[in-house]
Design a binder for these strands. Structure first.
Lengths: 104, 104
DNA sequence: CGGGATCCGGTAAGATACTG
DNA sequence: CAGTATCTTACCGGATCCCG
């Protein structure tokens, strides 16, 4: 992640790093259909702990791929959604999935 | 990696896992131009230790993405090259790199 | 409900020295 | 040259408890 030379001559790696967290692709996939609340995401990705889910969401937010909207209600309500940037990733993921099928 | 439900509904993640090792994309990128010897790869990816490089190469080989050819010479000579399967990954990497440029 | 704080164990990664 | 062995460190992910 700190090898700038390699980054320069191989831009793909930065993108892979963006998706590097083992759960991020799944999370993005879940959000690609609808904006979701924390608990909804957690239900759809059962084997992830809340802590890790929180961390991954924060990183995705920091990378500008998702947005976080908190409502001042009670019970608390937080909704996550793809940003434009995050949406632009969807065809890429579809492309990747297609490659997988062709080369299964 | 053990969430089969998620895998089933999101095939892309398996591919990402294939490239998951932080160095694999770089290594594949290096090999995409030419078959390379161990030392040559090491020179082109300086910040990786020999140990980790070895591990990553073994995993890439186990996944069928690269081939390893050992010559019985001295000094020892080992050459790594992309397999057909590995080559099929190149357009995908190019696509990823292109996405990166468009969304920089 | 949606997290944050903390501790803890496993594994990945780095450094170094050695080998066929 | 192309690794292997060993040790140490860094980080990731899980469990639990706590907070607003």
């Amino acid at each position: 992640m700190e090898n700038n030379l390699a980054h320069a001559e191989c831009p793909a790696i930065a993108t892979i790093a963006l998706l590097g967290g083992r759960w991020k692709v799944i999370i993005l996939h879940v959000l690609s259909k609808n904006a979701r609340r924390f608990g909804e995401i957690n239900v759809r990705v059962p084997s992830i702990s809340r802590k890790v889910l929180t961390e991954q969401l924060r990183e995705l937010e920091a990378d500008g791929l998702i947005s976080r909207k908190q409502f001042g209600e009670f019970p608390l309500r937080v909704e996550y959604a793809l940003t434009k940037y995050g949406e632009s990733l969807c065809p890429l993921l579809a492309y990747i999935a297609a490659w997988k099928k062709e080369n299964a």
